[in-house]
Design a protein around this nucleic acid. Structure first.
Length: 812
DNA sequence: AAAGGTGGAA
DNA sequence: CAGGATCCACCTTT
């Protein structure tokens, strides 16, 4: 703490205009930097807090505008950026140089929200770190910001950028011949590191000075699958103008000195690099320590010069043509012919898998792919075989049922996070494969869906597995907690983030109409809802709201008539089953056995008669349903933005997306005047930021004309209410089964926890229905007969339900 | 011996 | 913030 207790006053000042006074003379670089950074954070926080507090989210922006007005550059209309002192950047998307500016901003700033006319970014220490690590220099960042900004950059901001960039990304951790080196083009940085006792202790080589050698040639890396790799010399056609920042043609204003300066930079950098070696065992510690003292290391893998690890024979199939944004993302990873660790953010359905595969083809070393479920592990393998020419022997899946390693020197293993991190006792085979994995060196580690991996788990992964480069793939780099930050340091900076809107405009992902349907609660349900009761009960009531049910039914009818394939999501398993049964549709939840799921999905995809399925949370991830074109959400997990985004992602890859005028639909059904309203708005935040407009529908056109909707009479509604209430009570503890007409309690608790209990009760129930002894097995059969008797019309449905072997529930 | 249920874990 | 879903290892059964 500085002796001068100015913090208070400064914070107050910060609230209103953010005036900084720094006594630079008294402070070292590091201190200056810390101070600037702290104040930045404080300002950003207070602003955000104020905005979120909701007094008026927009007012401070207007205030900022007043300030900006005063010093606009004369030609400001040609410049697309508004930048304030706290690093908030507003980008006008209608600017002529929008593309150029956006490409640049994506590299240096964090996208906050990208709605159609204006995109908001914010400069953070971390985003600047990422910028430097993908090769932008301080000078370049400043100059280009200055170029795009409508107002002159404030000294505060300049100081911030300088402070962040000068210390970030200067030192790299590089593996050469499997040994770890800390490398930098500036020897003073290394000396500064070595002065730190903890780091010095980890040093491996015994030389006094530093190792010095010529820097590697910075060449254009040929990314497999691009025309460049195919041998075509016309690079400019395939690459976006801004992909290569060193391309002087990008400089629009010839008066700018950027190009010249940039070239100077290059010359300096190419000259020489210095390094010292560290003990491999201490690698984690060094990275951590460097982070702590403000000099984080970037991690790069010089795979071309790695002759210790055997090469893997893998190349993309000739027919695999990667798209420009995938190429852009990969070029960030592979510039200067090394593999850089980091995270690539692409919307679901935009080809994350292909990016991963291409990366593996680029590195051509053994690779380890980690995904969240065993199912997607199998899918990854299939994709590998489809897109690359890798021999099937070289690619193994390591899950509970499939424990293999590859027989040859190099290969690919696909596994799950749980399998790798699991600390419990393993079977002998698992142990063997784990040993195989931990004892070898991996060229590339691909982490699928990194956002779901809590940092501490991934720490374990990085600790256990020696991998030279790590690539994280995700669609939604956000979590409701703050663990996402840790990922930045465990894997690396975010290398690329695609813009959903842009991709959908170009037809890479489907266009989506989003709508929120507000359903009135019926009087019976609302008065019940108003009674003091538990959160669960209220939630249940709002989900089971008959009007919502009708809306759902109406939408299904409407979209089935249009020829859409519909997925209905419900987090609540009880509601899921209720809806699905009432509407005679197939449904899948956690308790549905594997074979059953596959059958249902198969039918959904290929059977003309099955156009709607109901899914529980299970459908959120790793279920590939390219047929779906319409999505209805009837209940959801509180305010989880990620879930919303991922569900939307389910329909983004719609096969028919390139049809003329094709639209996918996303409905969120919300019971009016309940908690759902609040959660719904919160959940949408991310999608809105990605530029999706949510329409609010309060009345469905033509719903009155539908004569066949369920729950039209108050009588039916009261029955439903009764059912729901009873189901709810029994759920809340007591083994109450009377009146539980559909045995729904057990359906909703399909999980293992209550299975034993369920079985016992099922016995009792089957007593009631006449199956006297060994009730458990018999239950199914008698139930099936019942179903047949009831005359289920739909062939498929009957077939499906007959073989629904996991029915712990007894139907009345 | 496959297939499927159970329990524990995170 | 809690409960659901998932995964794995072990244990039973045509």
């Amino acid at each position: 703490m500085a002796p001068k207790r100015k913090a208070q006053t400064q914070e107050v000042a910060a609230e209103d205009g953010f005036e900084l006074e720094l006594e630079e003379a008294a402070l070292s670089d590091q201190e200056t930097y810390d101070k600037v950074r702290n104040q930045f954070d404080a300002v950003a926080l207070s602003k955000r807090a104020r905005a979120e507090r909701g007094t008026d989210a927009a007012s401070f922006m207007f205030k900022k505008c007043d300030q900006w007005d005063s010093n606009l550059k004369p030609d400001h209309m040609n410049r697309p950026l508004w930048i304030d002192d706290a690093g908030r950047i507003i980008l006008e998307s209608f600017s002529p140089i929008f593309d150029e500016a956006q490409d640049f901003l994506i590299n240096i700033a964090e996208p906050q929200s990208r709605v159609s006319r204006m995109h908001e970014y914010s400069l953070t220490t971390h985003s600047l770190f990422a910028a430097v690590s993908v090769g932008h220099s301080t000078k370049e960042i400043m100059q280009r910001l200055e170029k795009y900004s409508k107002t002159p950059l404030s000294p505060t901001l300049c100081k911030f950028i300088e402070g962040s960039t000068s210390s970030f990304g200067k030192a790299k951790i590089v593996l050469k011949k499997t040994l770890s080196y800390i490398e930098s083009d500036d020897p003073t940085i290394l000396q500064r590191l070595l002065r730190d006792p903890q780091i010095a202790q980890c040093r491996a080589d015994t030389t006094d000075g530093l190792i010095q050698e010529a820097a590697p040639q910075i060449g254009v890396m040929a990314i497999p699958g691009t025309k460049l790799a195919a041998g075509a010399k016309q690079v400019t056609q395939t690459t976006e103008p801004d992909q290569n920042p060193d391309n002087p043609q990008n400089v629009q204003n010839p008066g700018d000195m950027i190009a010249a300066l940039r070239e100077d930079d290059e010359d300096e950098e190419v000259a020489q690099v210095h390094s010292f070696q560290i003990n491999k065992a201490d690698r984690e510690n060094v990275i951590k320590r460097c982070l702590a003292i403000g000099l984080p290391l970037t991690e790069e893998y010089d795979f071309n010069n790695d002759d210790v690890n055997p090469n893997l024979e893998i190349d993309l199939q000739p027919h695999a043509q990667i798209r420009y944004y995938q190429e852009k993302a990969l070029s960030k990873m592979f510039s200067n012919s090394r593999a850089r660790s980091g995270i690539i953010v692409l919307p679901c359905g935009a080809g994350k898998t292909l990016v991963g595969i291409t990366a593996a083809c680029g590195v051509k070393k053994s690779a380890l792919v980690l995904c969240t479920s065993a199912m997607s592990a199998v899918q990854w393998r299939a994709e590998f075989l489809k897109w690359s020419n890798i021999s099937p022997d070289d690619i193994a899946v390591f899950t509970a049922e499939n424990k293999q390693a590859f027989p040859r020197q190099a290969g690919i293993i696909i596994s799950t996070y749980t399998m790798i991190t699991g600390s419990k006792t393993r079977s002998y085979d698992s142990e063997k494969v784990m040993k195989f994995i931990t004892e070898r060196e991996w060229g590339l580690l691909i982490a699928d869906e990194v956002h779901v991996v809590p940092a501490n788990i991934f720490k374990k992964v990085t600790y256990n597995i020696a991998s030279h480069a790590k690539l994280g793939l995700t669609a939604t780099l956000l979590r409701e907690d703050d663990k996402i930050e840790d990922l930045n340091f465990l894997i690396g900076p975010k290398l690329y983030e695609a813009n959903w809107q842009e991709l959908s405009e170009q037809g890479h992902i489907a266009r989506v109409q989003c709508a929120e349907v507000w359903c009135q609660m019926t009087p019976e349900f609302y008065s019940e809802w108003l009674k003091p009761s538990t959160v669960q009960k209220r939630a249940m009531l709002s989900i089971m709201n008959p009007r919502k049910f009708q809306a759902c039914e109406f939408l299904i009818n409407y979209h089935e008539a249009r020829g859409d394939k519909i997925i209905v999501f419900s987090d609540n398993v009880y509601a899921l089953e209720k809806y699905a049964r009432k509407l005679k549709k197939a449904y899948i939840y956690g308790g549905t056995p594997q074979a059953e799921r596959l059958r249902i999905l198969e039918n959904f995809q290929h059977n003309e008669a099955i156009n709607t399925i109901f899914l529980s949370k299970i459908g959120d991830t790793s279920l590939d349903l390219p047929e779906a074109t319409c999505l209805i959400q009837i209940s959801s997990h509180y305010g989880s933005r990620r879930q919303e985004a991922q569900r939307l992602g389910r329909i983004l890859r719609a096969k028919r997306r390139n049809d003329e005028g094709f639209n996918a639909f996303f409905y969120s059904l919300v019971s009016k005047d309940t908690d759902e309203m609040y959660y719904s708005s919160k959940r949408q935040a991310f999608l809105v930021d990605q530029g999706y407009a949510f329409k609010v529908i309060t009345r469905l056109e033509g719903i009155e004309q539908q004569p066949t909707l369920s729950f039209r009479t108050p009588q039916e509604r009261r029955e439903l209410l009764l059912e729901v209430s009873l189901a709810n009570e029994s759920e809340l503890g007591e083994e109450r089964i009377a009146g539980d007409l559909f045995g729904s309690k057990f359906a909703s608790k399909g999980g293992k926890a209550k299975r034993a209990g369920a079985r016992r009760t099922a016995g009792t129930l089957s007593d009631l229905s006449g199956g006297q002894d060994m009730a458990y097995i018999e239950t199914n059969k008698s139930r099936n007969k019942e179903l047949k008797k009831k005359g289920v019309q739909n062939n498929f449905l009957r077939k499906m339900q007959t073989s629904h072997s996991n029915l712990k529930k007894a139907n009345k």
